[in-house]
Amino acid sequence: MANDRMETAARIDNRHPGAQKSGQGTVPWAIKGELILNCNCTVFCPCVVSLGKHPPTEGYCQAWAGVRIDEGHFGDADLSGLNVGLILEIPGLMARGNWKAAAYIDERADDDAYNGLIDIFSGKAKGTTGLFKVLVSEFLGAERAPVLFETEGKTRRLIVGKQIHGEVVPVGGANSEEDIVVTNTEYWMGADITVATATKGRVRAFGRVWDFDGRSAEICQIDWNGPR
């Protein structure tokens, strides 16, 4: 299937709530699965425990993320088995907003699932990801794309065409059989975050050229829903 890129006029812009579709923020939705993320922090991302009150290690955040949806729905649209790729850019403290974001939606999604996933990852669907609507000042766009999320042993891999090629692995601990996990957090993604690093973290998209090999990464089991 050919890429189906939204033109500028159709891009989601959280600064214009009047452009919202009817029913946005009222449709029941849920997603269960796994999220991986790799950012430019040189050590484990301080946002997990500081909840955005501590700046990223480089003073700003650039990140890609992948979501594997094991079970999910948006209204009557089935989201199970779909994957999503994300690009995030945050100029300073996470909690201060002014984020930029873009989404790559699995090309296997039908129109209802595609539109539902855009609402979820732009924050317009409210619920767990509703903070995006507040924090993201510029939604760069959304595209249909082949989004591959693979698990091989403890390695997680996200490939989105030529735009994102990422691979993350848990950081080793004293017991090689157990991952290092930060538990019982109030982090928006989930309470338990596995500390990881990127063996590959390359982005070539929306004018961004990023290489985050060896930088901070996270693995998280997600159980999101909305609206609420």
Rank of each mutant, 00 (worst) to 15 (best):
M1N: 09
G85V: 09
F139R: 02
M6T: 14
S122F: 05
G123V: 00
R202M: 12
G75Y: 06
K162E: 15
L158V: 12
C39S: 11
K32L: 03
L131V: 01
E34S: 08
A9S: 11
V49M: 13
R156F: 13
E178P: 00
Q221T: 14
K100G: 02
A145D: 11
F212D: 02
G23D: 08
E150Q: 15
F149G: 05
G172S: 15
G92R: 11
P170F: 04
G166N: 07
S22Y: 05
P91W: 07
K162N: 15
E58P: 01
V67L: 15
A95Y: 08
A217Y: 07
E89Q: 13
R144K: 15
T155E: 14
I105E: 06
A95P: 00
G214Y: 07
F132I: 00
K154E: 14
E34N: 04
V181S: 05
F212W: 11
I36W: 04
D4L: 13
C220Q: 06
L51W: 08
N38K: 01
C45L: 07
E177H: 10
N83T: 10
T129Q: 01
T151V: 15
F206M: 12
G85R: 06
D106K: 09
F206A: 13
D179P: 01
M94G: 08
G59A: 06
E152I: 11
L131P: 00
E89Y: 08
I222Y: 00
A30P: 01
V147D: 02
A101V: 02
K126N: 03
W99Q: 02
D112R: 14
Y187R: 02
F149V: 07
T194S: 06
F74G: 04
C220R: 03
K53G: 04
G166T: 08
W188K: 00
G226T: 02
I31K: 01
R144P: 01
G59Q: 06
C41I: 07
A65M: 11
I87H: 11
K32R: 15
G92K: 11
A109R: 05
S22W: 05
L135M: 13
R5I: 15
Q24W: 14
V147R: 03
L86D: 03
D192C: 03
S50F: 08
V209D: 15
V27H: 00
G141F: 06
M189E: 08
V49D: 10
D4K: 12
A9Y: 10
D179E: 11
K154I: 09
A125L: 03
I219Q: 11
G25P: 07
